[in-house]
Simulated assay, not measured.
Amino acid sequence: MPTSKSPLRIAILDDYTSAAQTAADWHALQDVQLSQITPSMMETEAERALALAPYDVLVAMRERTPFPKSLIDQLPNLKLLVTTGMRNFSIDMEAARAKGIDVCGTQMTPYAAFEHSWALLMALAKQIPAGHHAMVSGGWQAHTGVGLCGKTLGILGLGKIGAKMARAAQAFDMKVIAWSPNLTAQKAQEHGATFVDQETLFKTSDFLTIHMVLSSSTRGLVNEKTLSLMKPTAYLVNTSRGPIIDEKSLINCLENGAISGAALDVYDAEPLPADHPLRKLSNVTLTGHTGYVVQELFQLAYGQAVENIGAWQNGGPLRLLN
């Protein structure tokens, strides 16, 4: 809890759309000085340390800015770190606790990532970006989409989001199959999916959508070997974490037409470099890690961030993660 009578210095990080300050009532906090730190100021850890060192409180957007021990040790004034979401694998929780830094989280909307995943799948199937480009360029019909009815949706990770994808697919009369290391046939059946082995998932899917947490076991799970199993007519959707896919293998696969296309919201490097090879491919639909970026989420998450800071100021931190 704060001990100084000087204004509490708060920095909001990684708010690419500048939505945080209007999404919540920051004026409800007493005696604070609010700032916004742009991502361009923090491309290296040295730059992050320099930019963040003056602040007492940092409000981070998910895992966009990593907080390893090496950075935490360079932030002498930091007393409270608020992250949107109730888990953040990019924060060294133990290092923060050792320095007496409280780390608090917020709730997130449970539907935004699912909606975005399905929107990307539809954009691939119906060639929406290409159709829009043709129209605004003065053209007319330029591409042929595919129907979903009777196609097979493969779900890699049948958790909360994967289960929503399964239900949506059923509404489109799709067949649904799923696999993950811990998935059982019974659990898959509960969500209207058929449990298959990993090889069958990649071989059979017309659309393959990824919904797994990034870990040592899932990093590079989609790689040259598994991609080579996919149909040349298949499409891949990833809104989970970029490194689950071996990026070089995917780019090679797309360049050679080994699959029909991919829709991606997450990448190895974020923000995606302007000259990245993925930006040059005609068979991809790309969004900038916006799967959870909706007005309702900002209102919820930043609203609770304000609550967290106010409660911490009064000696009772809410939603403590460490």
Rank of each mutant, 00 (worst) to 15 (best):
T287L: 02
I210M: 10
G85Q: 05
S4Q: 05
T233P: 02
K203A: 10
W312R: 04
G138A: 04
R319P: 01
Q30E: 15
N223G: 06
E307G: 03
P232H: 09
C104Q: 03
A23C: 06
A188D: 06
T200N: 03
E45K: 08
L236Q: 04
W140E: 12
E63R: 01
N308I: 13
N238P: 05
T218L: 09
I210T: 14
A169H: 01
E307H: 11
H116S: 14
P54F: 06
A24P: 08
L158G: 07
I244G: 03
G288H: 07
G150K: 11
P54R: 09
L8D: 04
A53H: 02
T17Y: 10
Q74A: 14
A130H: 08
L286C: 13
A130C: 05
R9K: 15
E115T: 14
N252A: 13
E115S: 11
L29K: 06
E190L: 13
H211T: 12
V306I: 14
I309A: 11
W179T: 13
T84K: 01
S216D: 13
V103C: 14
A98I: 10
E63F: 04
A169S: 06
V32K: 00
I244S: 01
A274K: 02
Y292P: 00
V136K: 05
P110Y: 09
N256A: 15
H143M: 12
A125I: 06
T3D: 09
A130L: 10
Q198V: 13
T3K: 06
A11D: 08
L13K: 02
G315A: 08
H143Y: 13
A20I: 12
A113M: 07
A51H: 08
P273R: 12
P7N: 05
A171S: 15
L227Q: 02
A263K: 00
W140C: 14
K248C: 09
K164G: 11
E63C: 08
A163L: 05
S35Y: 08
M165D: 14
Q107V: 06
N223C: 07
Y55T: 11
A49S: 12
L281D: 04
A234W: 02
A169M: 03
A311D: 04
S249D: 07
F114L: 06
A123M: 10
Y302E: 04
V32Y: 00
M86S: 13
L201W: 00
N238V: 13
Q189Y: 08
P54T: 15
T109S: 10
T84H: 01
L13A: 08
Q189M: 13
N322Y: 05
T106Y: 03
